[in-house]
């Protein structure tokens, strides 16, 4: 029987899977809207627009709950890479992803109740959740209420910079999602991290 610790409370797991579902929905509908083309088999445009709007509002609400819950429970502290030696730990972690993992070496930093994430994880999660996500949500909300967008932007419609920022931040989140799902297979077994996200128990 392997050693295990209870790592993720119910609210984090519920938030995570709802977040995942919404982001996948927004990805599919967002791609359908941006790359709209009669030759491509995408979600029908007006349906995609409605789903994208509703899922976007849901994601913004969920994000607000996430921020509040993080403050109330103190979970925000998990996202802060703690000095000293943050850079060194990032390098060690990076080397493990590039070499150690292939040789079957164990994770360089053991997951604990105090530190759920390794330094690279903490930094990337922090950047995604507190820098990229707010920009994506704010630009999305501006799309829903275009009267708040600048009227003009260097001779273009003022929605252009909003649209480009939304597109780029959305792309970064899609890239993160691909990497995130893949890195979820790097636990003790290929499925153990997914199980943790379901039952909250982490296996060492």
């Amino acid at each position: 029987m392997s050693e295990r610790i209870y790592l993720l409370p119910l609210w984090i797991r519920l938030w995570h899977w709802t977040n995942a579902l919404l982001i996948i929905t927004l990805t599919v509908t967002g791609v359908s809207l941006h790359f709209a083309d009669p030759k491509l088999p995408l979600v029908e445009f007006s349906l995609a627009a409605r789903i994208h709007d509703m899922a976007g509002i849901a994601l913004a609400t969920l994000y607000a709950c996430f921020v509040v819950a993080n403050i109330v429970t103190g979970n925000w502290w998990q996202y802060v890479p703690k000095p000293p030696g943050v850079l060194e730990r990032c390098i060690v972690q990076g080397k493990w992803y590039m070499f150690g993992i292939f040789r079957g070496e164990p994770h360089p930093y053991r997951v604990s109740e105090e530190a759920n994430f390794n330094a690279l994880q903490a930094i990337s999660y922090w950047v995604i959740m507190y820098m990229v996500m707010p920009v994506m949500l704010l630009t999305g909300i501006t799309f829903l209420m275009p009267e708040f967008a600048p009227d003009r932007f260097f001779g273009f419609d003022g929605l252009l910079p909003v649209a480009i920022l939304h597109y780029l931040t959305g792309t970064v989140i899609i890239m993160f999602m691909i990497a995130h799902i893949y890195l979820g297979t790097t636990g003790k077994t290929a499925t153990s991290m997914f199980k943790t996200m379901v039952n909250g128990w982490h296996e060492h």
Binding site: L33, H34, F35, A36, D37, F45, G155, F156, D157, L159, L160, V162, A163, I164, Y167, L168, T171
Partner: peptide, 20 residues
């Protein structure tokens, strides 16, 4: 079109799309 309106699906930048 872009001079007056951003029309999703119509006013695209193919270079940016390729990079993305």
């Amino acid at each position: 079109i872009l001079s007056s309106s951003y029309v999703i699906g119509a006013t695209r930048n193919p270079t940016l799309d390729t990079i993305v």
